[in-house]
């Protein structure tokens, strides 16, 4: 009896714990020739399944062009998905446009890679911060202003900045404004797209601290898209490694970093320079460019660059194997 109640309880918490779940998500872009005839598909996101738990920071890492940003934008509904399902807070949002079903969308937000460019150059910061509230709420001007000012304080910006134009403030401040703009809606999940790119190291550190503080203050869940592994290691609870639109390894950050099992993850981690460590080139075997995502190799898509490649790799696409505690790997030969 007791065990039964416990079981259902754990099941319930497991369900409640998942804030965003993705099943078999695909985003294919048509590749067209000079006569606009489709000659193939660019598989930017190819059959990705993920569960994002409430309150966690899930890192998504991979080389440029592996589909990290496309994954984020497909989740946001900026790109309509080609297949699969996205369930957010228990609701299927797969084919909803960002404007539709406002209540839901307002709690899933996207923070742009270049926050300066994501602000209208002709709008003062204050007006840009008011916009999400104008769209999603019926608040009066004074109420909006009150909320904007309190958020501004949370992200550590002086109120005087409300009257500035985006080009008049620094990159780090633009990042804060970008965050404030999203936070006014009190979202539960924020997709952070390369949130530290283009910032110098000291600003990076303060921004990362800000992310942690905001997460506690507003009970946020982050999807942290980045190619900067040292930052990911510092801030993420779990990481998913993407290669050409597919997740090749996913697991707890420490497990993956200390014991990477997929050959791609191994080479990727070996590329992180460590002070006093071995020279990067010694164990960095990843060579060449990834294959053209519009024309993928058969079977395992990593086999063209894999050091442990076998003839069987060309036959079948490997599935994620959950043979280890807190770690899943898409390679049949991983140990």
């Amino acid at each position: 009896m007791t065990t039964e109640t416990q079981d259902t309880a754990t099941e319930n918490t497991a369900k409640e714990d998942t804030v965003l779940s993705i099943a078999g998500l695909r985003k294919y872009f048509p590749v067209r020739n000079a006569w606009k005839r489709r000659i193939g598909w660019l598989k930017a996101v190819d059959d990705i399944s993920l569960e994002v738990r409430r309150g966690e920071v899930l890192g998504i890492v991979g080389e440029s062009g592996c589909g990290k940003s496309t994954l984020g934008k497909t989740l946001m509904g900026i790109h309509p998905p080609s297949g699969g399902q996205i369930v957010f807070e228990g609701n299927d949002i797969t084919n909803m446009k960002p404007g539709a079903s406002r209540g839901l969308r307002s709690s899933l937000q996207y923070s742009y890679q270049d926050p300066g460019a994501s602000l209208d150059p002709r709008w003062k910061i204050g007006r840009s911060l008011h916009e999400p509230l104008e769209i999603h709420t019926q608040l009066s001007r004074e109420e909006r202003d009150k909320r904007v000012r309190s958020i501004l304080k949370s992200v550590g910006l002086p109120e005087g900045h409300l009257d500035h134009y985006p080009h008049e403030i620094s990159g780090g401040q633009q990042r804060r404004v970008g965050l404030a703009r999203i936070l006014t809606l009190h979202p539960s999940v924020i997709i952070l797209d390369e949130p530290t790119s283009g910032l110098d190291v000291s600003v990076q550190a303060t921004i990362l601290n800000l992310f942690s503080d905001l997460r506690q203050e507003f009970n946020l869940t982050y999807l942290f898209i980045s190619h900067d592994l040292s930052v990911v290691r510092m801030i993420c609870d779990r990481i998913a490694v993407m290669y050409l639109g597919k997740i090749v390894e996913i697991g707890d950050t420490e497990t993956v970093f200390s014991n990477p099992r997929h050959p791609y993850t191994q080479s990727l981690l070996a590329a992180v320079p460590i002070i006093g460590g071995r020279r990067v080139t010694d164990n960095f075997w990843l060579q060449g460019e990834p294959p053209n995502p519009g024309d993928l190799p058969s079977g395992c898509r990593f086999r063209t660059r894999c050091p442990n490649v076998r003839p069987e790799c060309a036959d079948k696409e490997p599935e994620l194997r959950s043979d280890w505690e807190g770690q899943e790997v898409a390679c049949p030969y991983a140990e």
Binding site: I78, G99, Y110, Y112, D114, A117, S118, D120, P121
Partner: peptide, 14 residues
């Protein structure tokens, strides 16, 4: 421009 896409992502109507 990114700011147009950002407004759409925020839920702004066409």
């Amino acid at each position: 421009e990114v700011f147009v896409e950002a407004s759409i992502a925020l839920g702004a109507s066409p």
